[in-house]
Design a protein around this nucleic acid. Structure first.
Length: 114
DNA sequence: TGTATGACCCTGA
DNA sequence: CTCAGGGCCATAC
């Protein structure tokens, strides 16, 4: 087997960070990237989630874009599904956006721009 | 090998 | 709020 572009190690670091988001809380792509030791690589987080094996059962719905926005088009199935799952965990949303700042995970607040 | 695309982010106008 | 522009870079074609 040949290690393709993104090493499994890198992908796993991202998956680990996503798995660490507590229920009822959300984090952002950028924040996850930093937590995984990959600052500035938010895009890779999106990719890692896309290719994540389903059996990992990652809480992908807890990952939103900057500002609490859901990253999918509001008309997509994924959008609806993510919104449903978040509400089910008690996260309030409005116009595709997580409402309360308090709902952003703690590390997101701590890592706020230096 | 080069170009296009994308589950992103940030700053500035 | 929108838009443009720069950064990031793995994949797909």
């Amino acid at each position: 087997m040949q290690a393709s572009g993104t090493s499994q190690q890198t992908l796993q670091a991202i998956w680990r960070a996503v798995r660490a988001i507590p229920r009822g809380q959300v984090s952002t792509y950028g924040s996850i990237a930093r937590r995984a030791g990959l600052p500035g690589r938010a895009r890779l987080v999106g990719h890692a989630l896309k290719v994540a094996p389903a059996d990992l059962e990652l809480p992908w719905h807890r990952v939103v874009a900057a500002g609490g926005r859901i990253a999918f088009p509001s008309t997509s199935r994924a959008f609806v599904e993510q919104r449903r799952r978040l509400r089910e965990e008690g996260v309030s949303l409005q116009r595709g956006r997580v409402v309360s700042e308090a709902n952003l995970s703690l590390d997101e607040l701590l890592w706020k721009r230096p």
